[in-house]
């Protein structure tokens, strides 16, 4: 083991894949950031959106936040296991992460079906018919932001699964760290989406 722990690496010491994922993460931040900026600006402008935000289910949202935070912890533990090349622990922790992703998606689907059942749809046509045309756009943002995030969850879970299968065959351990970084980004974005959509009403 190298003795230079805690010494800052130079740009050339970093594995390419990790550097690439970091740059990708910066790009993703700006994409989600653009959506969040647009949402915030409208949210400041329309106090009536607060009433719409109170229709979101804070219990389900909080569950999902907890699930994602926990999965983030599992991923760093998997990274730790990868450094020790401990195949069983890698399988355990990445398996738990993928399980968390599935729980997240199930909760998300429950939430979506509740919303659609109550007439809060993506296009917001029902609300426009009720004369709440300004409020209808809130649900556009809600579904677009959470939907795009859920898409990233699905992609992250698939990537983690592929990486786990590779690690079980005893190769490409470094991929776990990279996939883990991507997964943390999914968590990071949720950390901001949760208060924006669920709490601040």
């Amino acid at each position: 083991m190298n003795t230079s722990i805690n010494k800052k690496p130079t740009l050339r010491d970093i594995p390419q894949a990790r550097l690439g994922v970091w740059i990708l993460i910066a790009g993703e931040f700006v994409i989600f950031g653009g959506l969040i900026v647009a949402y915030l600006l409208y949210r400041f402008r329309y106090p009536e959106w607060a009433e719409m935000a109170s229709h979101t289910n804070i219990v389900l949202g909080a569950t999902n936040t907890f699930v994602l935070l926990t999965s983030s912890y599992f991923v760093v533990k998997a990274h730790d296991a990868a450094i020790k090349k401990d195949k069983n622990k890698i399988t355990l922790y990445i398996g738990l992460t993928i399980l968390s992703a599935l729980i997240f998606l199930v909760v998300k689907i429950t939430e979506y079906s509740q919303k659609i059942h109550h007439g809060f749809t993506f296009s917001g046509k029902e609300l426009v018919e009720q004369g709440k045309h300004i409020e209808s756009t809130y649900w556009g943002f809600y579904f677009l932001m959470t939907g795009l995030h859920a898409f990233h969850v699905i992609v992250g879970a698939i990537v983690l699964f592929i990486v786990m299968m590779g690690a079980r065959k005893g190769k490409n351990y470094q991929r776990i760290e990279v996939a883990g970084l991507y997964w943390h980004m999914v968590d990071l974005i949720w950390i901001f989406l949760f208060p924006l959509l669920y709490i601040a009403n």
Binding site: M1, P9, T70, D80, I83, Q174
Partner: peptide
């Protein structure tokens, strides 16, 4: 991996969590 690039610190993840 992980010969050279395992230089970053390993904070106590449980504490952070």
């Amino acid at each position: 991996y992980p010969a050279l690039n395992d230089y970053h610190g390993h904070p106590n993840y449980l504490k952070v969590y």
